[in-house]
Design a protein around this nucleic acid. Sequence first.
DNA 1: CTGTCATGTCAACAACACTGACGTATTTCC
DNA 2: GGAAATACGTCAGTGTTGTTGACATGACAG
Lengths: 170, 170
Amino acid sequence: MASDSTAPAGRSLLFLTDDQLRKGIEAMFFAYRGFTADPDRILAEKSYGRAHHRAIHFIHRSPGTTVNNLLSILGVTKQSLNRVLRTLIADGLVSSTVGDRDRRERHLHLTAEGAALERSLSDAQRERMRAAYRAAGPAAVAGFREVLEAMMDAEMRRQYQSLVDQPDGR
Amino acid sequence: MASDSTAPAGRSLLFLTDDQLRKGIEAMFFAYRGFTADPDRILAEKSYGRAHHRAIHFIHRSPGTTVNNLLSILGVTKQSLNRVLRTLIADGLVSSTVGDRDRRERHLHLTAEGAALERSLSDAQRERMRAAYRAAGPAAVAGFREVLEAMMDAEMRRQYQSLVDQPDGR
DNA sequence: CTGTCATGTCAACAACACTGACGTATTTCC
DNA sequence: GGAAATACGTCAGTGTTGTTGACATGACAG
């Protein structure tokens, strides 16, 4: 809207121009490219993709998680996840063990080798995040997280919160 | 923040725990899903994908841009872009005209129909961004943008800046 | 025992990315 | 004027990641 340039100054708390919003949209686009760039490079060497990274990340985060659980976090079909999981198990990065209480469930864990890959992936990603956080400062970081959380769907935010509340345990 | 409690208080400007960084990483993952959810729904109805959205967005942003220009912004191969561009031109959403100064170049514009789709896509995405911005407040928004910009590669940040500095002109 | 659940798998398909190679038109440079 | 570089388009092949639909097995629950 061209008429946004005439926006009253006193309403800045609530009045958001299309231009402001567009800049946020474009920032998300380019930032996400940077966000995935480093892991992508590492994964390409081992002929894995982002799907493998996501599976590894969330298995690391919730050791012993079930397939169904992972399915709902990743938001993909079981066929799609299974293809990835199958290669990870075949390659010895992930172990799948029958459940004790419910023997239908399979509990997923990273093997030593899987944990090593997870470490190298998250090291790379954390380094970039650390650099960005340092450059922007603590106040900016708080705002960054607030906006991201507000951008999620309600259901995703629920999953995010329950994940984030438990420490990494590394 | 569980392990954050062990962080030395006086170094908070520079000391970033793995836990803090991991939360940022997971926030990016879930937020980006929300970020693309609304346009994805609209595009699915018309059997277009994210690649079409990106092309339409940047053609709208830089009317008359050349194919090479778009290529470097999107960071894909020309074969990949061409597949998308071909369908958009065939469907009458994008026009391609021979350059005046350099007749090898093709200048890309949105047709009326293309502009209408762009509008409906960006309306949806802007609505989500607006809601997130409102929920988080102006200080958070500034921090959000700062961190995102710091997360980009130098080359991407250059492209982002030159784009963002020109208004939408809507 | 029957119904439901968790999981795994097969097949087919589509979107979107890639590499490599080739062709055409045009511009630039020597 | 002719060679080289540039801009674009296209063909063919491949790989990852997602989808639907169907089916099988084993395990739990009423």
